[in-house]
């Protein structure tokens, strides 16, 4: 009989640890061997000795981390390819979260666990879609694990943004968006919707956009907002990290419409508290229904929840007759990058 995943996959302070493989998945502190789902800072930390991830994730880590910190030894794996470490087979399968994001499929003595990392089910022109994999244990996040979260179709939110851009044609629209994933997705969605004017970028967003383009994601005419004059930015779309939209940086814009693109924008008071006038509910995470739908597709009898609103999700699993387990891993989703 195949061993239950809890005998060979264990939560530790550093993160989830695969005993027979001797590696951590998305460890939150520097370790000997790490397998990494995607490049967001709470999942991809600096200083590991050996890192296994997709070529895109490794490239993202190199762009974001100081020289030599993105893993002393980097090993890239193509999605679908199987790597063996001791008796464990490791396979990476797209998670649909950001460029290069993958679920990690582990098989050991006939028992299979899927660590999904962060994922979403809405189509995203900048990354490969999530693929459900049948397994014995499905490890999921629950960032938006409450039934109040239902992310509308992103194209509807883009349409609202474009309506506002034409309504306030003399004002810049300053959109707070995370630098990795959200920024590029917003740009790609705007291009899909036929918006081909130049899009202006905060300096912190430039490198990752260039990296996306290197990997074949076309983003159109991008220009630095930092050197553009006030007049050129009137009526334009400007992207900046969320922390910059209500900061001194925004003063270079003349009376901008402050917008933000995040799943949290669903909650009005939260949107308001961040000083946002035009909240755009665009998320790179699965909403409540998408989490439940994904769980059903994996046909896993047991679900482990890494972080987020785990109490609600575990209660719902109970109602569905599935085993739920909160791993209570500390350190994910708290650095402001998760949405």
């Amino acid at each position: 009989m195949a061993p239950h995943p809890s005998t060979w996959l264990q939560p530790r302070p550093e993160g989830l640890f695969c005993l027979p493989g001797g590696f951590f998945i998305d460890p939150t502190r520097a370790v000997e061997r790490a397998v990494i789902t995607h490049g967001h800072a709470d999942h991809a930390r600096p200083g590991h000795a050996h890192v296994l991830a997709t070529a895109e994730t490794l490239a993202i880590m190199r762009v974001r981390m100081p020289e030599g910190k993105a893993g002393a030894q980097q090993q890239n794996v193509a999605p679908g390819e199987t790597i063996r470490v001791n008796e464990v087979a490791i396979r990476l399968v797209p998670a649909g979260h950001v460029l290069g994001s993958c679920q990690i499929i582990l098989e050991y003595q006939g028992s299979r666990a899927v660590i999904s990392g962060d994922y979403k089910r809405q189509p995203d022109p900048t990354c490969a879609p999530f693929e459900p994999i049948k397994c014995d244990v499905f490890v999921t996040e629950a960032t938006f694990g409450l039934p109040i979260f239902h992310h509308p179709d992103a194209s509807l939110e883009i349409a609202r943004l474009l309506a506002s851009v034409s309504l306030f044609a003399h004002r810049a629209h300053l959109i707070g968006a995370y630098g990795l994933g959200k920024t590029q997705r917003l740009i790609a969605l705007l291009r899909q919707a036929g918006y081909d004017a130049p899009i202006f970028l905060h300096g912190a967003l430039v490198k990752l956009c260039a990296l996306y383009e290197e990997f074949g994601v076309a983003l159109g005419d991008l220009r630095p907002a930092t050197v553009a004059d006030k007049a050129a930015l009137r009526g334009a779309i400007v992207l900046a990290p969320p922390s910059a939209i209500s900061d001194r940086w925004a003063r270079r814009l003349d009376d901008p419409v402050i917008a933000a693109a995040s799943g949290w924008m669903m909650v009005r008071q939260r949107a308001k508290a961040s000083g946002v006038e035009l909240p755009l509910v665009i998320s790179d995470h699965a909403d409540w229904q998408a989490i439940l739908h994904s769980i059903a597709e994996t046909e896993a009898p047991e679900i482990w929840v890494t972080h987020g609103a785990e109490a609600a999700l575990i209660h719902q699993l109970d109602l569905l007759g599935l085993r739920g387990r909160a791993l209570r891993l500390i350190g994910y989703g708290d650095d402001g990058e998760a949405p």
């Binding site: 409450l146 039934p147 909650v267 609600a312 209660h315 719902q316």
Partner: peptide, 18 residues
């Protein structure tokens, strides 16, 4: 709506109407 899910949601949102 399931009452437990409602209470957890209410705790998160903080506003009954919303």
């Amino acid at each position: 709506v399931d009452p437990v899910l409602f209470e957890l949601s209410y705790d998160f949102v903080g506003d009954l109407a919303e």
